[in-house]
Write a protein that binds this DNA or RNA. Structure first.
Lengths: 237, 237
DNA sequence: CCAAAAGTGTTGCTTGTACACCCATGT
DNA sequence: ACATGGGTGTACAAGCAACACTTTTGG
């Protein structure tokens, strides 16, 4: 066929161009003990031994970059179907001392309460509060800063929480999450009114009586995919 | 040295992973005759002959992806120092029939009035109104849709115009640009007040008397890089 | 009782929006 | 004279921020 011949000519044309290693690196955020945390892996060998790194991996022949990221996340946390969003690519020729590696970075949001803790522990990984991060290899600090900014931007447009909190949560827990993300305090009353006005939370009949004397109702996200069908834009400063 | 040995071991470690062709594709937007336009190149050979494509190129060994995009833009428009922003990467293994090519996409904004028209004409390129785009090769339509969404988002946060309009412009011209970007009309009075309240435009003493009977003052963007130092967030619409 | 969080209400300010209105002038 | 865009003002609604206030209950 003509078509096939054309395609093989195209393949021939491409041969003059260089190929590159392509990696994915994930900023994996979780929320625990009132803090926003980042999952990091210790580097056991030189160069940069003793520093920490984001979880990453190389893109294989038969997978897209997002598939590569999901594969890596499944291997390291045991979780499927996690929130994953493409962030910024880093491609300076000398960013990795081992070879020229182009890295596509992703932001992943994990519910710490349901991930595979044993799997994480085995690998020596550790959840670090984003306010006290250790030294990271290569340009990974820059990647994290970039991912955090993306997370903040996302949180200011959508109401996130489904991805980071347990199924049931109190409005104080949700507010504390937002305070951890934005590193600022929100007025409890105003936060409550704003969030409830969005009409995407459902109040349950159960109360949490541990974190307050009076007891606070649990809420959950309404079922039926909001965020896709809703045009609502939430503006948190 | 120990360090060098470690680095070569790292390089050895990477050898088990596949390499990929990495390309950049640019959605080049311009503004002319009251319309938002996109610069497209005709495809002269099979497969997909007769369709149009974005301008792109392969990433070389010694350049970052952004540098590759700037190189391509210089070659095709003759312009340096143009506005360029990383958009979304496309990496489905079969997106290009010739070979597995990973494409990083960019949005570029061009001032049509100062680009090298001869260079563009030679290549057979054509500025298409974004409202009437032809069929594009591969997944380029998806790339354009994505780039347009990014442009809209950017225009709703920053005041763009410096990148698309002549040095001097009237507020009507700026409004028409925004109407072209968002495909909706803005109230002239309200648009004027909103834009001027940002305090980033400077009124000149010259008037444009061609487009209105009364004559409208020209404005320009104040010098001193706003957009970097300003925390202002403009919300259009 | 008191501290601490839950939950509701009030008030003032800022912002967006829909207009009305006068101005200047080329045709 | 009149249509067209330039430019300013006004009136109303919506949203947000600051903060007062009541409720509940474990210690």
């Amino acid at each position: 066929m003509e078509g096939e011949k054309a395609i093989s000519l195209l393949a021939e044309l491409y041969k003059q161009y260089p190929k590159h290693y392509v990696a994915v690196d994930c900023s994996i955020f979780g929320y625990e003990d009132g803090e926003l945390k980042l999952l990091l892996y210790p580097r056991g060998f030189e160069p940069a031994q003793g520093k920490w790194s984001l979880m990453g991996g190389f893109v294989q022949e038969n997978e897209s970059m997002e598939e590569a990221a999901r594969r890596v996340l499944l291997q390291t946390t045991g979780l499927k179907d996690i929130f994953l969003e493409q962030a910024t690519a880093f491609s300076k020729p000398d960013r990795d001392p081992g070879a020229r590696v182009i890295s596509m970075t992703f932001v992943a949001l994990i519910r710490i309460d349901i991930h595979d803790k044993d799997l994480v522990r085995e690998s020596g990984a550790h959840w670090w509060p984003v306010t006290k991060l250790p030294a990271l290899i290569f340009d990974h600090s820059e990647i994290v800063t970039n991912g955090l900014a993306l997370l903040q931007q996302k949180a200011s447009i959508d109401l996130i929480g489904k991805e980071l909190l347990p199924d049931m949560f109190t409005l104080m827990q949700l507010r504390n999450l937002y305070e951890a993300i934005f590193q600022k305090t929100f007025d409890p009353g105003n936060f409550r009114k704003k969030v409830l006005s969005l009409d995407i939370l459902e109040r349950l009949s159960v109360k949490n009586t541990k974190e307050s004397k009076k007891g606070a109702f649990y809420y959950k996200f309404k079922s039926g995919d909001y965020g896709l069908r809703s045009e609502r834009i939430v503006k948190f400063p």
